[in-house]
Simulated assay, not measured.
Amino acid sequence: MPRITFHKNGQVFEDEVKSGANLVVRAGIKQYPYPHLVYECGMGKCAKCACKVLSGGELLPPPNWKEKKQLGARLDEGFRLACQLWLEHDLELEQIPESI
């Protein structure tokens, strides 16, 4: 089971999720990382769930067209949309309030 480390506002939250989990779906049903993850549409249209990948990004699939459209140059800074990631490996993310 992937171990997810989530950083927000100087705090660190950690938990394990089932393989194939999506953090926005989990937050929507009030599981980890709820209530810490900011999100809105869950479909890659708003970019509210944008997070900077601190570690484990090399194991993620390449960004899809929704991430490319919403994040643009921020992809090069290591940002991804949490709603577009189905997790199979350990991952460390940071949601930066200014990036939302």
Score class of each variant (00 low, 15 high):
Ile4Leu: 11
Cys83Gln: 08
Leu59Asp: 06
Lys30Phe: 14
Val17Asn: 08
Gly20Met: 01
Leu54Asp: 00
His7Thr: 06
Ser55Asp: 08
Val12Asn: 02
Lys66Thr: 06
Tyr34Leu: 05
Ser99Gly: 02
Ser19Tyr: 10
Val12Tyr: 05
Ser19Phe: 09
Gln31Gly: 06
Ile100Pro: 00
Trp86Ala: 07
Leu23Trp: 09
Ala73Val: 08
Gln84Ala: 01
Cys49Met: 12
Leu71Trp: 08
Pro97Arg: 05
His7Gln: 11
Cys83Arg: 01
Met1Gln: 14
His89Leu: 03
Ile4Arg: 11
Ile96Gly: 01
Ala82Met: 14
Ala73His: 08
Asn64Thr: 12
Pro63Ile: 00
Gln84Asn: 05
Asn64Gly: 15
Cys83Thr: 06
Leu93Glu: 02
Ala27Trp: 03
Lys69Phe: 13
Leu81Asn: 05
Gly57Val: 02
Trp65Leu: 11
Glu77Ser: 11
Pro33Asp: 12
Val24Asp: 09
Ile96His: 04
Cys46Leu: 06
Asn22Val: 04
Phe79Asp: 04
Asn64Ile: 08
Asp15Pro: 07
Ala50Gly: 04
Lys45Glu: 12
Leu87Gly: 03
Gln95Asp: 07
Phe79Gly: 04
Arg80Cys: 04
Glu16Phe: 15
Lys18Asn: 11
Pro97Trp: 10
Leu54Asn: 05
Pro35Leu: 06
His89Trp: 10
Ala50Asp: 03
Lys8Tyr: 15
Val12Asp: 03
Leu81Gly: 02
Gln70Trp: 04
Leu23Val: 12
Val38Pro: 01
His7Cys: 06
Glu77Tyr: 10
Ser19Val: 12
Ser19Ala: 15
Gln84Leu: 01
Leu91Tyr: 11
Pro62Ser: 14
Lys48Ala: 14
Tyr34His: 15
Gly44Glu: 03
Ile4Asp: 08
Tyr39Ser: 01
Cys49His: 10
Pro63Ala: 02
Ala27Gln: 02
Ala27Phe: 00
Lys18Arg: 14
Phe79Leu: 13
Lys68Thr: 10
Leu75Asp: 02
Cys83Asn: 05
Ile4Trp: 13
Leu37Trp: 09
Met1Ala: 15
Asn9Gln: 14
Pro61Val: 09
Glu16Val: 11
Trp86Val: 03
Lys68Phe: 00
Gly78Ile: 07
Glu67Tyr: 00
Leu60Gly: 07
Ala82Ser: 12
Gly56Thr: 01
Asp76Ile: 00
Glu58Trp: 01
Ala82Trp: 00
Asn64Phe: 11
Lys48Val: 11
Lys68Ile: 14
Cys51Trp: 00
Lys48His: 12
Pro63Asn: 03
His89Ala: 08
Phe13Ser: 07
Ile29Asp: 05
Tyr39Leu: 01
Cys41Phe: 10
Ala21Lys: 07
Glu88Ala: 13
His7Glu: 09
Lys68Glu: 14
Gly72Lys: 14
Leu81Tyr: 05
Gly44Lys: 05
Leu37Ile: 13
His89Pro: 04
Ile96Ala: 01
Gly57Thr: 01
Lys66Gly: 02
Pro62Tyr: 07
His36Gly: 05
Gly78Cys: 10
Asp90Cys: 06
Glu40Gln: 13
Gln11Arg: 15
Val38Ser: 12
Ile29Trp: 07
Asn64Lys: 12
Ala47Pro: 09
Gly44Arg: 07
Asn64Cys: 15
Gly44Met: 05
Pro61Leu: 14
